[in-house]
Design a protein around this nucleic acid. Sequence first.
DNA 1: CGGCATCCTCTTTGATACTG
DNA 2: CAGTATCAAAGAGGATGCCG
Lengths: 220, 220
Amino acid sequence: MRSYGQYCGVARALDAVGDRWNLLIVRELLLRGPCRYTDLQHGLPGIATNLLAERLRDLEAVGVVSRQAAPPPVATTLFELTESGRELEPVLRALGRWGSRFMGESPEGDAFRVHWLAFPVAEYWVDNDPEAGPLSIAVHTGEEAAVIEASGGQLDVRLGPAQSPDLVLSGDPQTILGLLVGRLSPAEARRRGLRSHGDIGLLRRFRPEHRPPASVRLAP
Amino acid sequence: MRSYGQYCGVARALDAVGDRWNLLIVRELLLRGPCRYTDLQHGLPGIATNLLAERLRDLEAVGVVSRQAAPPPVATTLFELTESGRELEPVLRALGRWGSRFMGESPEGDAFRVHWLAFPVAEYWVDNDPEAGPLSIAVHTGEEAAVIEASGGQLDVRLGPAQSPDLVLSGDPQTILGLLVGRLSPAEARRRGLRSHGDIGLLRRFRPEHRPPASVRLAP
DNA sequence: CGGCATCCTCTTTGATACTG
DNA sequence: CAGTATCAAAGAGGATGCCG
């Protein structure tokens, strides 16, 4: 991307990561941790392979991504975020939160990957009963599966099947998401095709939190 | 911008405002409030006029900007953020904060506008003595002037000259910024050409704050 | 397979000139 | 003041090929 040529933090940030696909690459690495090239391709449906290669070079050049030669069991290149790259998390969270207003519109034709649910969970969930025992919730949608694990007040989202989940949810992405962020009640979600095994009341433990408003007025 | 075609909040947000220049247009409207077309051009050095017109149409279409026919004293079109557009503030703040790491690099050749300082002030300042009387600090850099006003714990940044400032700062953008965010001490700033009138110690009232870390791990 | 590079077409950008 | 019109250059997207 050409530089905006403006001595402003927002402009400089966009100079570095404002190019098309860049922030989505960062999303993948934030959500999944170190990834192979093909993992990235899978998590970025629609990207042209030459663009992915070029963007990874660009992100490396600005110090957001680094590449590692993985040791023998993997024996491939792993791409991971640098410290600076991980510090983009607030940007991605703010974008995801703002973008959630468009998630009600039907996902017809849109690709979906389960691990994308980790952002809504991170943004909208809080463990209201951190003293209670660990809990695991399996989520199945499309061909993929993920697990949300709560333990000691900490929430984690992993890809893959659960060992012995306390609750299993399956349904289409829109319904699962609606349920997870509280836009749909369990009853509404079931009406839209949600299937569940286990006590769906467990979800109440993770009600959305609210945050304080900003304190500085920008344009009085 | 073509849609990413991904059912993900971040992707949907970028579908809406990820196009080149869009977030900088939002920055201008956040910092300056309702603007005329030519105000926007001035605050967006480097934008082509056809692009500005097109982007304003796009942003209107996604509900981020609205246009108003201003009443007789102004008698022109005013562009302003909708509620949804104002809710992009956390995105811009996160971007500006992340981008501040690139602000140490020399601004040679980069354009600068004083009102861009409002973001760093909003991000890095806090009024540690809100009970104290109101205070106004004038900032002069390049051809422009702005005022930072503190009153009752509230901070405001305005364009234009100050009435009777308690402190006047002038210098190049990099030095002023370094001083405002605490990267430079007053002595260092003076060595880099800062000129001041009034008690520069007043700045201590507005020391940077720190924020708590995030509580949800994304990629365990 | 994993990690690209090349080639090609189509779209978007940026610069400039011009207009109601 | 608030744009539209035009055009060259850069970038995106898709297909395919190459090399360990």
